[in-house]
């Protein structure tokens, strides 16, 4: 039956499309090892591991990395709590304003990041809140909620209500039911949502430029290097590390939600 074989043209076009999406990232892996440090010369004149050692010694990179990890962890925890609560309420019953709530959750990521960023900044200015670690977290948690929410709401819908009722009939109270019946059922979805929220926060730059004061998260550090390149080889190495660090949670989220209704990262 010919309809199960893809036409050659389609195969080629799809393959080229995938190549277009992946080759540029692979290029970064090559540049991390180049001996050239003044320009982006191709082909690289030689290969070296020297820049890994140089990057290792750079305290500014470590500080930025530490701040990014801290911000991402705390934002993820806040997003997990808020997103799960929201998903629990929305999936449970129809109530007044339900549609408005789901729209509200999605809005921070549906509107361009610059709008979220500048709104928060002008609000902080109006309220005389100085920029700090917490203003960064405030912004990040706001747009991370949606990722957790999307993963959790799909799973909540599949946890049948009769499970909860059975647990209550057997004498468990709401808290025990949550701890021993609901939580095990939604845990992988929460883990996946949390990982994606972490990746999203770890990588965020647009909102962060508006909500950070003097602090430098890793993406902000990277942006500075992009606008005014000072040490290209170090940037190459950091870029490669960032690729690896963000790929791991994505792969993890994929394997955790594989075979369920929801698709990891649906919401981005």
């Amino acid at each position: 039956m010919h309809s199960d074989r893809a036409p050659l043209g389609l195969k080629v076009a799809a393959g080229l499309g995938l190549a277009f999406m992946h080759l540029p990232i692979l290029l970064i892996f090559v540049y991390a090892f180049t001996t050239e440090d003044k320009s982006y010369q191709w082909p690289p004149p030689g290969f070296t591991l020297k820049w890994f050692a140089v990057t290792w010694e750079r305290t500014d990179v470590w500080e930025a990395m530490g701040l990014s990890l801290k911000v991402a962890s705390i934002s993820t925890v806040i997003a997990l709590i808020l997103g799960t609560l929201c998903a629990a309420a929305v999936s449970r019953t129809k109530f007044f304003g339900r549609e408005a709530i789901s729209l509200l959750v999605i809005l921070p990521i549906a509107l361009p990041g610059i709008i979220t960023g500048i709104s928060l900044r002008s609000a902080f200015n109006l309220a005389d809140i100085p920029f700090s670690f917490w203003t960064i977290v405030l912004g990040h948690a706001t747009f991370c909620v949606v990722v957790v929410y999307n993963n959790a709401v799909a799973r909540f819908r599949r946890v049948s209500g009769s499970l909860v009722e059975a647990s209550m009939d057997l004498g468990a109270n709401s808290f025990q039911t949550f701890r021993y019946v609901i939580l095990p059922n939604i845990s992988t979805a929460l883990l996946a949502g949390g990982m994606l929220a972490f990746a999203l926060s770890f990588d965020e730059v647009i909102v962060t430029t508006f909500t950070a004061g003097q602090q430098q998260t890793l993406p902000i550090w990277m942006l500075e290097e992009l606008v005014r390149p000072r040490q290209r080889p170090v940037t190459n190495v950091v870029a490669m590390i960032v690729v690896i660090v963000t790929f791991l949670p994505i792969l993890g989220a994929y394997y955790l939600t594989r075979g369920t209704d929801t698709v990891a990262g649906q919401g981005k």
């Binding site: 999406m21 992946h22 990232i25 970064i28 994606l196 990746a199 999203l200 990588d203 730059v205 993406p219 990277m222 942006l223 992009l226 870029a239 960032v242 690729v243 963000t246 790929f247 994505i250 990262g265 981005k268």
Partner: peptide, 8 residues
């Protein structure tokens, strides 16, 4: 590619 770092 969707989830990998925007700046990278």
């Amino acid at each position: 590619p969707l989830w990998s770092s925007y700046l990278v």
